[in-house]
């Protein structure tokens, strides 16, 4: 119990610190690198929650593919620290932070008041040696087969769209042809 608490709070501290650095770093590349660390920390949280396969996929997809893409694009532009990284206006900025903080506060308040509802009996009971990956795949290819196929089509459309967007002769850079 105490070990679980220690690991949870260490990970939570790690995650919130690097998430904060992600949104506060003025250099976008540093921002992206902090976000990579956040993603890795989330992978560790998934692992500690018993979702081993999801943790692996999180690291492969987010840290290994999506964020590499982000960092590569940012490096391609060779951006330095931005002079004006944040939006202007004290009042609107305060309102934005306040609204996000209020959302988080409301969410945490609701969660902490619904402990009796949320705290299921099966929490922590799950068999650590159960073959989660196997049941996950069975579920994915039976109940969620249609969604899976649709996702494949979505990815195809997105791939074509991204290629079309970045090679488009008209549209955004028609005048620079």
């Amino acid at each position: 119990m105490i070990y679980e608490a220690i690991s949870f709070y260490a990970l939570a501290l790690f995650l919130t610190f690097f998430a904060y650095k992600t949104i506060s770093a003025t250099n976008p590349i540093h921002s992206a690198l902090y976000l990579v660390l956040t993603m890795l920390g989330l992978g560790a949280v998934f692992f500690s929650l018993g979702a081993h396969f999801i943790a692996g996929v999180q690291v492969i997809v987010y840290a290994g593919a999506v964020m590499v893409l982000f960092v590569m694009v940012l490096m391609l532009f060779d951006l330095k620290s931005e002079l004006q990284a944040f939006s202007k206006g004290m009042l609107s900025g305060f309102l934005k932070v306040f609204s996000a903080a209020a959302l988080a506060g409301v969410a945490i308040g609701v969660i902490s008041h619904s402990v009796q509802v949320v705290d299921g009996a099966s929490w922590g009971v799950g068999d650590p040696n159960a073959d989660v990956t196997k049941y996950l795949s069975i579920l994915l290819y039976t109940n969620y087969l249609f969604a899976f196929e649709v996702l494949g089509v979505l990815l195809l459309v997105v791939a074509i769209g991204a290629v079309a967007l970045s090679r488009m002769k008209g549209g955004t850079h028609a005048d620079r042809r």
């Binding site: 590349i29 992978g43 081993h52 692996g56 690291v59 492969i60 490096m75």
Partner: peptide
């Protein structure tokens, strides 16, 4: 020993790109 050994190896070796990008940047 990790039950999902191959996924783990793929995951950590996909992080190798960062050292190249960090060094270059």
């Amino acid at each position: 020993k990790i039950g999902i050994g191959i996924v783990f190896v793929l995951a950590v070796s996909s992080l190798a790109a960062y050292s190249l990008m960090l060094a270059g940047y």
